[in-house]
Design a protein around this nucleic acid. Structure first.
Length: 269
DNA sequence: CGTCCACGTCTAC
DNA sequence: TAGACCTGGACGG
């Protein structure tokens, strides 16, 4: 579920609810304990929690270990992951990772489909810069690599690749291509060179989605419980467009032929 | 009841 | 480049 906007909202939620809290333990549900262990360092008795996001990746900071090294957990939220801060005796269904305070509260990762992943690590080296919080690095990372074979794939596939487009997912892909008037089947390198709107929208659209409270489509709900009314109107293409195909990776690509620049009219996949 | 579908990665032929 | 990994909601019979 969550793409850049939703992960950024979650990160701010975590900072909000964990501010000035003391945590003492990390616990896992039996469903995930074997597959995704997260052993608590023996010298980690009392810790704080702070959060950052970078594209679709979330990084929890738990202070430093006894030798001064920062303790961080890298988390990917999968399709249905979200966070809730609640009493320790009132964990909601499907809460699989819990950070427990000394006074009976828990920060819970709730994830019905269990696609979320976590590990003791810093930022993943396989993900590129964040198009929103590291806009210039995001752009230069792409512009300085445009000659590489990676950019010979169609733009609709390149946009889903987290090594360059960290944070872009299926609904943002559809909205970016649509609002850029971009033929989804043009090769990524030439599309990016000829249509500056693409990279610009990679930054502005996730930020817009963030400002209106995220994409509250199905199971994902803004943990701040902000009444989000505008999202279905903000979304112009995903789930609405006249055309869709299943892409090479099995994801549904939504696009609208009538919005393409004249150059591309009449062309077919 | 059943089938299809979902905002994402992973790993294994 | 399929599948594997999962649950639940929508919708059809």
């Amino acid at each position: 579920m969550p793409e850049l906007a939703e992960v950024k909202i979650m990160s701010e939620y975590i900072n909000d609810v964990c501010y000035d809290r003391d945590f003492t333990s990390i616990t896992l549900s039996p469903e995930v304990a074997r597959r995704l262990p997260l052993d608590q360092p023996s010298d980690l008795q009392i810790f704080s929690i702070s959060s950052k996001s970078r594209g679709k990746e979330l990084l929890l900071g738990l202070g430093k270990d006894s030798t001064g090294n920062p303790l961080t957990i890298s988390i990917a939220m999968g399709m249905s992951g979200n966070w809730i801060f609640c009493r320790r005796d009132k964990h909601p269904p499907h809460s699989h990772l819990h950070f427990n305070t000394i006074d009976g509260w828990s920060l819970c990762l709730v994830d019905a489909r269990r696609f979320a992943r976590w590990r003791w690590a810093s930022w993943s080296s396989s993900r590129g810069p964040c198009p929103v919080s590291e806009k210039e690095e995001f752009r230069s990372n792409i512009n300085s690599n445009l000659h590489k074979p990676f950019f010979k794939k169609p733009i609709h596939l390149a946009l889903m690749d987290q090594t360059y487009f960290n944070g872009i997912g299926n609904y943002l892909r559809a909205e970016i291509l649509f609002k850029a008037g971009q033929d989804p089947f043009e090769l990524a390198g030439t599309a990016i060179l000829n249509n500056p709107k693409i990279l610009e929208l990679c930054s502005t659209l996730p930020y817009e989605a963030y400002l209106i409270g995220g994409g509250q489509l199905k199971d994902w709900k803004n943990p701040f419980q902000v009444p989000s009314t505008g999202f279905s109107e903000w979304m112009k293409c995903y789930g609405k467009a006249s055309e869709s195909i299943v892409d090479r990776n099995g994801r549904k690509l939504w696009y609208c032929k009538s919005q393409l620049k004249p150059l591309y009219e009449g062309q077919t996949p």
